[in-house]
């Protein structure tokens, strides 16, 4: 563990807290993409299967359970909670996310660290996470204005993998034989996708105005 990865994990956790706060406080999920939330739930379920096979640390286990539980809770809320589900922007959340699932799974079959079910699913979860935010960014663009909590959610989510990049640089410099190309390249792609959104988020913060994305 190092300060960069800890910062990344805490920022990731914060993004989920912000999202849950928004849904709990407003009893609304307007502006949130259910498809992105479902992709994230799939990412965690695929990546954290090793809960049953490996023990890394208490911290690791607790965080995995928290991420799985919270992502499933958000999906449940948006689909089944009587009040929250009414505010879901179904007509705007139209990204064809099944192509993302299919494409990243095929990539995982081809590009993995070991051709075993667990490693294929791990690689799949890494690739899928890199692009999971796309439905949300498309939804943000279509709905135009972004409320504070949604903006912060996306910001923290993007920042977390950026911290991981610093973590990987740190580990590369301090650990012997640290080469994790799949995670590093995917992490860079993932952070890069957020960069465009960050730009508009920063501009609106600088001008102290409500975040507006180009149509």
């Amino acid at each position: 563990m190092n300060i960069f990865r800890l910062a990344g994990d805490m920022t990731h956790l914060l993004s989920i807290i912000v999202l849950l706060l928004k849904i709990y406080a407003t009893k609304s999920c307007s502006g949130i993409s259910l498809k992105t939330q479902e992709l994230y739930a799939l990412v965690f379920l695929a990546r954290y299967l090793d809960l049953f096979t490996d023990f890394i640390s208490v911290y690791n286990t607790i965080m995995k359970v928290v991420f799985i539980a919270s992502s499933l809770a958000i999906v449940w809320c948006m689909r089944l909670h009587p009040l929250v589900k009414r505010s879901y922007d179904k007509e705007l959340d139209t990204f064809r996310h099944y192509f993302l699932i299919g494409g990243t799974f095929v990539l995982a079959l081809v590009l993995n660290e070991k051709f075993t079910l667990q490693e294929i699913l791990w690689a799949f979860s890494i690739y899928l996470e890199a692009v999971a935010i796309l439905p949300q960014l498309v939804l943000l663009q279509r709905s135009g204005n972004v409320d504070n909590l949604t903006g912060q959610y996306v910001f923290f989510l993007g920042a977390y993998r950026a911290f991981y990049i610093l973590n990987w640089i740190y580990r590369y410099l301090t650990e012997p034989r640290f080469t994790r190309w799949i995670a590093c390249v995917s992490g860079i792609v993932q952070t890069g996708i957020y960069a465009d959104f960050f730009y508009y988020y920063f501009i609106s913060w600088k001008n102290n105005s409500k975040l507006k994305l180009p149509a």
Binding site: R5, D54, I56, E113, W122, Y164
Partner: peptide, 10 residues
């Protein structure tokens, strides 16, 4: 690559 604890990150 040692088995088991390779994926030690979240």
């Amino acid at each position: 690559v040692e088995e088991g604890k390779y994926h030690d990150e979240l």
